[in-house]
Simulated scan of single mutants.
Amino acid sequence: MKVIRSKEFTADRAWGALDIANMSGVTCRLHWTDQPYKWHVNDGEEVFAVLDGTVDMHYKEHGEITVATLQTGDVFYAAVGTEHVAHPVGAARILVIEKEGSV
């Protein structure tokens, strides 16, 4: 049993994470960041939920870059093969659920 107060979580570096659970090879991690990540494609599907802050999610669709602004409470789903990168607007806390070992 764990209670995690996500708004209180910070890390000592951008994209630092608190491991919450590993469910048969699927990880659930809380991230804190104030810096963009990097363009990447995950090894599987990814669920990306903004718990605090705002994140501009850049992703490629049919070769075109699209940007979706995610507010607190919004969820982004990246299907297999979706190239994407998250750009927080200030500090943000993000819950990421993905295959263990994904980029």
Rank of each mutant, 00 (worst) to 15 (best):
V103D: 12
E100L: 07
P36H: 04
E45D: 11
I97L: 12
D74H: 10
L18A: 12
R93P: 01
R93W: 01
V26T: 12
I20Y: 01
T82A: 10
V55M: 03
A21C: 04
M57S: 06
V67F: 00
D43L: 08
A68M: 10
F9G: 08
I65C: 12
H62A: 15
G53K: 04
F48G: 05
R5E: 15
V103I: 15
L70N: 08
W32F: 05
G16P: 00
G73H: 02
I97V: 15
D56C: 04
D34A: 10
H31Q: 08
W32S: 11
T54R: 10
D74T: 02
V47K: 11
A14C: 06
I4H: 03
E100K: 08
P88L: 09
S24D: 15
A79Q: 13
T10I: 07
W15V: 13
H40K: 09
I20W: 02
I97T: 14
G53H: 01
A21D: 07
K2E: 13
I65W: 06
N22I: 08
G63C: 04
I4Q: 03
R13H: 13
F76H: 09
H40F: 03
A11Y: 00
F48Q: 08
L51A: 07
Q71T: 10
V67M: 03
V85Q: 14
A11V: 06
E46G: 04
M1D: 11
V26Q: 10
S102K: 08
E64V: 15
W39T: 09
D19T: 13
A79E: 11
T54N: 02
I97W: 03
V75T: 14
H87V: 14
A21M: 11
Y37S: 14
K7N: 14
W32C: 06
G16Q: 06
A78T: 04
V80I: 11
A78Q: 08
E8P: 00
E100Y: 03
D12M: 06
V3G: 07
A79T: 10
H87L: 11
Y59V: 05
G81Y: 00
A86V: 07
V96A: 14
K60R: 14
G90T: 14
Y37V: 11
G73V: 04
E83T: 11
V47G: 09
T66F: 07
K2P: 03
V67N: 04
G101Y: 02
G73W: 00
A68R: 13
A17P: 00
T82K: 13
A79S: 11
D43F: 02
V80S: 12
N22D: 14
S102F: 03
A68Q: 11
H62Q: 15
G44D: 09
K2N: 10
V80Y: 05
K99D: 01
W39L: 09
V80D: 13
V85I: 14
W32K: 07
M23Y: 13
L95C: 07
N42H: 15
D56K: 08
Y37G: 13
H31P: 01
T54M: 02
K99F: 01
D19Y: 05
D52K: 12
P36T: 08
